[in-house]
């Protein structure tokens, strides 16, 4: 079976399991390294970013709570998160993340309408990389300030409540429109909800015109990336085999140039990579790009595969 199809099936199965799974007794816990939003009632598992920022199992925990069983629990959640990240690494992004699927739907719609994708200049694209680090810093520092430096409690879950577009958008899939409303309780809540709704609106437009637009800014991507070196998931390039055709760059939803440009290091799993394997599928060099899991090779590029896949695809279009 074509990798694309397998990925589509996996993505959709996981979307339904993570969005509606709770209603059928599926519960994957609170440590998932993907945007399975806990604001979706009846979801099948929760994004770890919420646990990480929260006062139950996260950074906002007070020093006294840390000494209790809650401290151990939070360590357990962190442990599970790290384990999951190590095990599947970026597969979480390209194959599982439900918010990623929503973005892919928008892209699919745009392509059906034959609307051209927005293009960033290379320099702009490189500069955007820093945004997700800033967001990561934001979601780590603010909870610490609340817990230890007297920050206002209404600043809690800063990333989820003010930035993350999944919070207003994902609950729409279970018919919940409450998160689109503004909260007039005080200045902080009002600011947070205005930010949240504005960003969600902007992101919707962005995600329509640019494939995986939100992933460009996703702090989870950074967290996952940190563990790439100890993960059994490997994305490798036979640098001597590359003839530099540039298909990998052309096909990448994140416009990654590193795979194409790499000339010495065989490890090409870059910071923005989602492991969607689009590049590997389009690489005409036999075994030039390959995805490995431990010692097993999951998939490797080949000329025959490219010819088969694209001939099929063009029949469809």
């Amino acid at each position: 079976m074509m990798v694309t199809k397998l990925r589509l099936i996996t993505q959709h199965v996981m979307f339904f399991a993570l969005t509606y799974g709770g209603r059928f007794g599926i519960r994957f816990g609170h440590s998932l390294p993907c945007f399975s939003c806990p604001y979706v009632s009846g979801c099948g598992g929760s994004c770890y970013l919420m646990a990480l920022q929260g006062n139950w199992w996260g950074l906002q925990m007070s020093t006294t709570d840390m000494m209790t069983a809650m401290g151990l629990e939070s360590l357990a959640h962190l442990g599970i998160f790290i384990l999951l990240v190590i095990l599947l690494n970026k597969f979480w992004c390209g194959w599982i993340c439900p918010f990623g699927v929503v973005q892919d739907w928008l892209t699919y719609l745009r392509r059906r309408l034959a609307i051209h994708e927005a293009q960033f200049r290379w320099l702009t694209r490189d500069r955007l990389k820093t945004v997700k680090w800033i967001l990561l810093a934001y979601l780590l520092i603010v909870p610490l300030l609340i817990a230890h430096a007297g920050g206002h409690y209404d600043l809690h879950l800063p990333f989820c409540r003010s930035i993350c577009p999944a919070k207003p958008l994902m609950p729409l899939f279970v018919g919940n429109v409450r998160h689109l409303a503004l909260d007039f309780t005080n200045a902080v809540t009002l600011l947070f909800t205005i930010l949240s709704v504005t960003i969600a609106g902007g992101m919707l437009v962005g995600m329509f015109f640019k494939e995986r637009f939100f992933c460009l800014f996703c702090p989870m991507l950074v967290l996952i990336h940190i563990f790439r070196k100890i993960s059994p998931v490997r994305f490798e390039k036979n640098v001597d085999g590359c003839i530099g055709c540039g298909n990998c760059q052309c096909m990448c939803p994140m416009d990654i140039r590193a795979v194409h440009e790499q000339k010495t290091d065989k490890n090409v799993l870059s910071e923005d990579c989602l492991l969607c394997m689009n590049c590997t599928e389009a690489c005409p060099g036999d075994e030039v790009l390959s995805i490995r899991f431990f010692k097993w090779r999951l998939f490797a590029s080949s000329r025959n595969y490219v010819a088969r896949r694209f001939a099929q695809r063009q029949r469809l279009s």
């Binding site: 392509r111 034959a114 609307i115 051209h116 994708e117 494939e211 055709c245 298909n247 052309c250 096909m251 939803p253 689009n278 389009a282 005409p284 490219v306 010819a307 694209f310 279009s317």
Partner: peptide, 17 residues
């Protein structure tokens, strides 16, 4: 150099590829 692989099936997308 081989056949064209494209991701964007829009006119400009194919031209670019």
């Amino acid at each position: 150099p081989g056949a064209v692989c494209y991701e964007e099936p829009s006119y400009r997308g194919i031209m670019r590829a």
